[in-house]
């Protein structure tokens, strides 16, 4: 005690911790990164080709096609996913089992395989249509775009169904009852009350899957859809600058994903309305009859 009293007049000096290992580790990582950069620098990469091709019209067309396909396939996936989720929770056993079967089938097979199946549909169904009404040649209908759209969108719907179902299940049953009690039909309560709240839970994984979809569109290159990967492949088949062109594609995928990630922040902010400060208070404490007296 006496020491501390005396020390007050001289004042303590705080010596910052030296954190010697933090510094060493940081240094090691920086050196490794520099070595990596050097490796690429001295490696046989003709950066000129990256620069020349990054804004090449065919590459840009590939970027645009990849973006269009991402949005189309996600849109189809979300529509199918919401429908499948609502069907899954329906009282109707047929709807329920159709939904379970859909998710089982399209989650159970690789996306690439599904793309190939759609693209080659003409092998088993030479024509499609409604008998007696109209009929079209399958090869004309099943263009690379349509095959990729169906293949990616339908398998995405199977994943989205589970995400949407989890979101709906996360909402208190009382919310639906409150909606019903002010005269809403069950469907209206679902659309006005449950889904908007479930979006808070649904949006982050959907954002994640949209970003996944950007990259999944590259699978469509195998069925001749001219998305980004296929566009750069077409270039390197001619000039043999494989790595350079793949770097071009990588840069564009990164750009698109980064923009989408920023967009996701704004969408999440929109759907977290009402959760700004704290969650709605629902005091656990029960006022029992003693207070009534």
């Amino acid at each position: 005690m006496g020491d501390i009293e005396r020390a007050r007049s001289t004042a303590f000096v705080v010596v910052p911790p030296r954190k010697i290992w933090t510094k060493i580790l940081g240094l090691v990582v920086i050196v490794l990164l520099l070595l990596l950069v050097r490796a690429f620098w001295v490696g046989d990469i003709a950066w000129k080709y990256v620069g020349d091709n990054i804004f090449a019209p065919s590459v840009l067309r590939g970027v645009v096609n990849a973006i269009i396909m991402t949005f189309c396939a996600m849109a189809l996936g979300i529509v199918l996913g919401v429908m499948a989720a609502i069907m899954r929770m329906s009282d109707n056993p047929v709807l329920k089992n159709v939904s379970i079967g859909y998710v089982w089938l399209f989650r159970g097979t690789p996306a690439l395989l599904q793309l190939l199946l759609w693209f080659n549909l003409a092998l088993i169904f030479p024509t499609i249509g409604i008998p007696g009404l109209f009929s079209l040649k399958t090869v004309d209908v099943m263009t690379p775009f349509v095959a990729a759209f169906l293949g990616l969108g339908i398998q995405q719907g199977a994943y989205t169904a589970e995400v949407v179902r989890a979101g709906i299940l996360s909402i208190d049953k009382g919310q639906a009852e409150a909606g019903l009690s002010i005269g809403m039909t069950p469907l209206r309560a679902m659309l006005r009350i449950i889904l908007p709240q479930a979006m808070r839970v649904i949006v982050p994984p959907i954002g994640n899957e949209t970003i996944g979809m950007v990259k999944l569109t590259s699978l469509a290159s195998v069925i001749q859809f001219s998305e980004l990967l296929r566009s750069v492949e077409d270039v390197y088949y001619v000039n043999s600058r494989v790595i350079e062109l793949l770097i071009v594609a990588a840069i564009w995928y990164m750009v698109v994903v980064t923009v989408l990630s920023i967009g996701q922040i704004f969408i999440e902010r929109h759907f977290s309305k009402g959760w700004g400060g704290h969650r709605p208070g629902q005091p656990a404490q029960r006022t029992l009859a003693e207070e009534a007296a």
Partner: peptide
């Protein structure tokens, strides 16, 4: 369901745990 919803409008219900819609003002 639509007719049941119409009937429900004739009675108001107040729940133990309020069940206000948290995403609406």
């Amino acid at each position: 369901q639509r007719e049941i919803a119409r009937q429900r409008q004739s009675v108001g219900m107040v729940f133990q745990r309020f069940h206000l819609f948290p995403h609406k003002t």
